[in-house]
């Protein structure tokens, strides 16, 4: 049994014997059991095929919607996100500008503000006589009274 150029091992000197057995009458009913199994498998297969056939259109529609969603929604979403980003940028710029103004306004004192308001009008101090200036310093008039005096 073993190859001619190899020495036959001792265990091969014994004739091969099948040490296994089957339950009694196992082979007698085997054809029937196999045919029953085949029919059951075919039934299962056909019912699962019917489910698949029934679900196929629904799955097709779902797949199409997903595809459209992927193809259309994402670009639109990205486009919208870009627009929102621009608006946010503009808003931020506006806020910064306002903040800058707030800082500038806060840093201006009352006199500077009055000067700024009346810049385009006649220079009140240019027409002021030094004697009047001295008279002013010697009176107890407040700013509003002095202003109304000068204007009149």
């Amino acid at each position: 049994m073993y190859e001619k150029d190899h020495k036959e091992p001792d265990f091969m000197k014994r004739p091969p014997k099948n040490p296994f057995r089957t339950p009694d009458s196992y082979f007698e009913s085997l054809e029937d059991r196999i045919m029953v199994n085949i029919k059951n498998t075919t039934k299962k297969k056909s019912s699962s095929s019917a489910i698949i056939r029934f679900l196929k259109p629904a799955l097709g529609i779902a797949a199409s919607i997903t595809l459209v969603y992927m193809l259309a929604y994402n670009p639109i979403n990205k486009f919208l996100q870009k627009g929102t980003a621009k608006t946010e940028l503009t808003d931020t710029a506006g806020t910064d500008l306002l903040n800058n103004y707030s800082i500038n306004l806060a840093s201006i004192d009352d006199n500077s503000l009055i000067n700024a308001i009346f810049t385009d009008e006649t220079n009140i101090f240019a027409e002021t006589n030094p004697d009047e200036f001295l008279a002013y310093l010697s009176t107890d008039m407040n700013d509003v009274e002095i202003y109304s005096e000068i204007q009149n």
């Binding site: 265990f11 014994r14 014997k17 040490p19 296994f20 057995r21 089957t22 339950p23």
Partner: peptide, 14 residues
């Protein structure tokens, strides 16, 4: 396996 009918030597071989 309850359906093994071999002797000890056959068990060793298997």
């Amino acid at each position: 396996d309850p359906y093994f009918d071999g002797d000890k030597w056959q068990m060793i071989l298997q």
